[in-house]
Design a protein around this nucleic acid. Structure first.
Lengths: 225, 225
DNA sequence: ATCCTTTTGTGAACCGACGCACAAAGTCAG
DNA sequence: CTGACTTTGTGCGTCGGTTCACAAAAGGAT
């Protein structure tokens, strides 16, 4: 007995949330190809996951499939988008306009999904004032003012490691609770603030570990048949 | 009864491997500050993890601590580095020299930890021949030749989504088994090939989900006290 | 040499996630 | 309307990871 008007649960597992964007991308690809309906099996293949897992994930949002048929692509795109909060417009500020910050500012994948780069901020007087991706780079002194004025709710940190914690403290102080951190440091934040970390060198190190294993690990006596 | 010469296990949990680079970074920071010895508690704080987890992680590598004292910083740096395969030099090729590829090529964090950008490759005749970060950009036609000649074992994909699978197939065909993929596609590879994915827009979407929850989810009747 | 303090390494309980396998629910043909 | 077929949604066993809590080990002081 579930109320159809409130089908989804307050608590969607983190593992599920992390996969929803994957499903969404696969679904968008199908919508472009004018595919109207898709089975969990086909969608699972496109997203690179197990089909039972996919069905369980989707069941957390509600009961949006039709047995014997599958899922309506457009409808599912809408439901997932809404669940992820992509039906609204998110203003993002990028702090740190070095190589990476510049790349992020120009990255098309942001705009395409409800995200809008609303501000570029840097400390270097050399870059401040420059136009990048159609935006004027503003000075770090304006950080708090810009965040408030533009209604920024998500901050991307692309600063050097040494500056990240300080910038983080400042944006948290003006009420930002969602941070995407590219700086190679562990940020400490108060409860209620979400930090997600992307660390290029860590990913490479994990690859190196496995690569080394394949090649015959450290001190490994390879079963050299 | 464990042989002291072969303390480490063949199977280190994936979750542990993913954290080793974190410990390594924290330890390097301590080494720079001339800290000789560190307890699991202090190191855990620096790495942002639970201390019991840290101890269990390290115990998978061997028994490198001293009860009542802690861990020798330099020794632990060496052991983790060796386990991760960072004592050897890894040649990395970056395919796709757009904004992101350029940023990666200039990113200092690679070189610092045993990784060396050995080749830049692109398909656009406009970029081929350019010098970026001291390297000459080579044409995609040379992909296989360059990989073999330079001994590249890890490939970073920073191409547009549409090109990623094809490039992936080609590098796998010449024997590459470690790929770091920045393109927003699910790559399909044969068994034995490791693919790690970094997806900027997915990270933002996950943040948006939580941000929306905090603000009062979709259709949410906020307990507006 | 013995006791006291500190800190490691790990046994064991707990928790969430995964995937199998199946009943329930819907479609479609005749 | 009925029956065969398809595909969803989920109960349940399993597994890997996290955390607590403690015994074992090391060092230093007396």
């Amino acid at each position: 007995m579930k109320s159809p008007s409130q089908p989804r649960d307050r608590g969607i597992p983190d593992a599920t949330v992390a996969r929803l964007p994957l499903y969404l991308r696969a679904l968008n690809g199908m919508a472009e190809k004018a595919i109207a309906t898709v089975s969990s099996e086909d969608l699972a293949v496109a997203a690179g996951v197990n089909s039972a897992k996919l069905r369980k994930d989707l069941s957390h949002l509600g009961s949006y499939g039709t047995r014997g048929v599958g899922y309506d692509v457009e409808y599912l795109v809408y439901q997932i988008s809404r669940e992820l909060g992509l039906t609204q417009d998110w203003a993002v500020a990028i702090v740190g306009v070095g190589n990476l910050g510049r790349a992020l500012a120009n990255y098309g994948g942001f705009v395409s999904r409800g995200f809008r780069v609303a501000a570029l901020i840097d400390a270097d007087p050399e870059v401040v004032g420059d136009d990048i991706a159609g935006l004027n780079v503003e000075h770090i002194d304006e950080l708090e003012a810009v965040i408030k004025r533009r209604g920024v709710s998500i901050v991307v940190l692309a600063t050097p490691a040494a500056a990240a914690q300080e910038v983080c403290d400042r944006v948290v102080a003006v009420g930002v609770t969602s941070i995407l951190n590219f700086a190679p440091v562990v940020l400490s934040v108060p409860d209620g603030v979400d930090v997600r970390k992307v660390d290029l060198s860590i990913e490479l190190q994990i690859l190196a570990f496995h690569e080394q294993r394949k090649a015959g690990g450290p001190l490994m006596a390879v079963d050299s048949q």
